[in-house]
Design a protein around this nucleic acid. Structure first.
Lengths: 278, 278
DNA sequence: GCCCCTCTGAATTTATGATTTCAGCATTGA
DNA sequence: TCAATGCTGAAATCATAAATTCAGAGGGGC
């Protein structure tokens, strides 16, 4: 009972509903699930029944109150948007099973990429790149178990573009030494995806205490570091397998690097030229 | 103003939101639109802010009340489910020039990803993963200046899946030591993109002399290492800027890891379990 | 390092929406 | 046709969620 979808419950219950209640059921199925998310009065009106009837209908489905019923609808909606299956029907005639693993994986990765672009406000992205291009103060980078390589990749590129780039390694023993020079207004880019690394929260706490501005690059579930972050760039990573996919973070990093380079081109090009020679 | 999507309004408004309000904005974008359909108190709690802040946030978006805001969300949801599924994201098919840097970059990255999938024969991909999953002999990883981080990322994951994973670092001084144990039939994954790293050719030569099987992950212009490689997985990287984009390589790595994990699941799951505990 | 101003969330008030009640009406069967 | 049954929705009540207020915290600027 508990675990059934609302639509499923309607189907089960429809035969013992009274006629006005059926009107409510049809109304809901007709614009599912939106109508159920509206206030009772609106639901009633749209479905051509009274509020009282709608309430009786809901209680027939086994929900102990209208808000309870709405919560179920919301959870269903959330569930649906998380599962990657949703757009299999419609336009694409081809069978999924036909595609090769790599194709399916790439399709997922593309979705994650697009989803990430939608999740990140342009202004936030721009603000981060501008701040990176300013060359004010130092810029620290830190990552977790797997994301450390992202931090490394970013560091390697950023070094070419601006001075003062440092990487914080993960060893607690050396942390104090590394953080001692952090000054107010310095920038810190922190990577953290689930399962979130507790030590990064400590690092972030420390950085925040020293008044560094934190840029957090994380997944859609949002690392706890976000509490301390000045800027947050969340990416979609879910792919429904053993591991999440960090490809979208990687591409975000490349985008940040590219944009930062663009913004600081006069400085950066000179710098890169001289590194090339030296 | 009236006709804008809620997400659109958030993007427009985010720069003038206070930090607690931004938390609300991110919370909503993170589970859009469900969180906004919940009562204020729940929204607030999930987003890590107070109800008052959520209300202020909503009013910043230009809605005159919370119910008004919820109505907008419901209408959007209704709209979405009515129009054909593949509507171009949010604001419709506006001109390229209008799009922000990140959107354009992501579009490029998506092209590269698709291009890579087309460039790599399914059989080649599958053969590599199968070979990795076999757990025969050791598996060495090596990369160049920037791709070294890809090697590191792959190593970190591969270690969880199979034994005998080693990373070759770039220092010529230690190379001989590292290669001394390579035996015929061992596997070596080499990353190389332009401008190709001469030292990788040397490493590859050496590996080939010791009869290791080389898997080369490279770009569309094909590293010279390909001469020695048993398997080649080329990716599209061109993006028409200062740097090429290696996002497609990264996603390829993730795909290889995922597929390899899948193929060696009985072994891998046990191994991962015991690492988890230990 | 200090002060000022803005932001924040707990507490309170107000408003709105959910629930219940009940009189009347429709339906069904004798 | 008439009674009995029980469905229905208008209106009253009750509960809960939204809006407002304000004291205190925190951040930014000088």
């Amino acid at each position: 009972m508990e675990g059934k979808s609302v639509a499923g419950r309607i189907h089960d219950a429809i035969h013992r509903l009274t006629s006005a209640e059926k009107r409510a059921a049809r109304g809901l199925l007709g614009s599912y699930p939106t109508l159920g998310l509206a206030p009772v009065a609106e639901f009633a009106q749209q479905a051509g029944a009274s509020s009282a009837t709608v309430l009786r209908f809901v209680s027939q489905l086994g929900y102990k109150s209208y808000p309870d019923f709405q919560r179920a609808l919301r959870e269903e909606l959330e569930e649906r948007s998380k599962s990657p299956l949703q757009r299999s029907s419609a336009s694409g005639g081809r069978a999924r099973a036909d595609e090769h693993f790599l194709d399916r994986f790439v399709t997922q990765a593309v979705d994650n990429l697009r989803g990430s672009a939608a999740l990140i406000p342009a202004s936030e992205f721009e603000a981060v790149c501008t701040r990176l291009a300013e060359n004010r103060g130092a810029c620290y980078l830190a990552g977790g178990r797997f994301t450390d390589f992202l931090a490394g990749y970013m560091e390697a590129h950023l070094r070419l573009v601006r001075p003062g780039v440092r990487r914080l390694d993960g060893r607690p023993a050396t942390r104090a030494d590394q953080l001692i020079d952090v000054r107010p207004g310095d920038l810190a880019v922190v990577f953290d995806v689930r399962r979130y690394d507790p030590s990064l929260v400590e690092v972030a706490t420390d950085l925040a205490a020293r008044r560094a501005q934190i840029v957090l690059i994380t997944d859609e579930w949002m690392s706890p570091v976000s509490r301390f972050a000045r800027f947050v760039l969340p990416c979609r990573t879910e792919i429904g397998r053993t591991w999440d996919a960090n490809g979208s973070l990687f591409t975000l990093v490349e985008a940040v690097i590219a944009r930062t380079t663009e913004l600081s081109w006069p400085t950066a090009s000179k710098r890169m030229g001289s590194i090339e020679k030296g």
